[in-house]
Write a protein that binds this DNA or RNA. Structure first.
Lengths: 133, 133
DNA sequence: TAACGTTATGTAATAATATAACATTTAGAA
DNA sequence: TTCTAAATGTTATATTATTACATAACGTTA
């Protein structure tokens, strides 16, 4: 398996590294703030890098939070099928890697007989830590 | 089964009726534009009604589109478990009502053994019409 | 290496989505 | 009827995202 990280552009690299280091999903303007010292000054520069990183599957957008996390799936190429668990208390987000779930959803066909190659699933609840409180 | 539609407030009723009549998901500011003649003048009035309508399950938010549709499930009360199919060409959105799917997801437990009472699933693809083109 | 097309970058302006804060009114329950 | 919770009205502002246009870097292939 070849990790094709080499060909990220300068801005893409900077922004990916930041997101990848973050323990929690990052929002676009928080990213912007954090990379200003590296010369990335405008929202559009951030959004362009984010778009590309999402497109190539290096990061995912958490739609319900308008935030971005690095793909946790090291073998993830172009990931069109995503699932996350989101803690409604501490906002911790974890990518769910579950082959059975993925298979189930990929094979799912609705009442019109239609299938989907792409989906996004967000589960909500309390993480173990928050449950204990 | 009692339809409890009676106790929507004035603004909630106006906005729900508009969304319910719309063949496609509606965005907040498009809603605002459409209800200005009825005296709803400010974004906040719209967002407050939307929040409430989502809370009581009369409408759902399509997170990937920042848009709202009326719940298609007539028996839907407080719907915390939602699934949609979204056409990436014409943007048609359909609520998926599939007991097996709902059961599968409600019973799903991740590798930490955690379950979730709430989820949102968005499938993407081409609807039958768009596929033909 | 020169010329070309594609991808990425820089910059300014602005559009689109959503919330904070505060005052007032309405609807229901006690 | 009095009290409380929910809803409304209004202004201002915060947050998220895109349009438009100019320039630069990269990779191919002739």
């Amino acid at each position: 398996m070849v990790e094709k990280q080499l060909n990220l552009s300068k801005n893409q690299r900077i922004i990916f590294d930041l997101i990848d280091k973050s323990p929690e999903p990052m929002k676009a303007y928080s990213i912007l703030f954090n990379v200003q010292k590296k010369g990335i000054k405008a929202p559009l520069q951030v959004y362009r890098a984010l778009d590309k990183l999402v497109e190539i599957g290096k990061i995912h957008k958490i739609e319900s939070r308008n935030a971005f996390i690095a793909c946790q799936n090291s073998s993830c190429q172009i990931s069109k099928t995503t699932a996350f668990s989101i803690c409604e208390s501490c906002e911790k987000v974890t990518e769910i890697k579950d082959n059975k779930l993925a298979k189930y959803l990929t094979n799912f066909s609705d009442n019109t007989g239609m299938n989907y190659k792409k989906y996004n699933l967000e589960f909500f609840g309390l993480c173990k830590k928050c449950k204990r409180k």
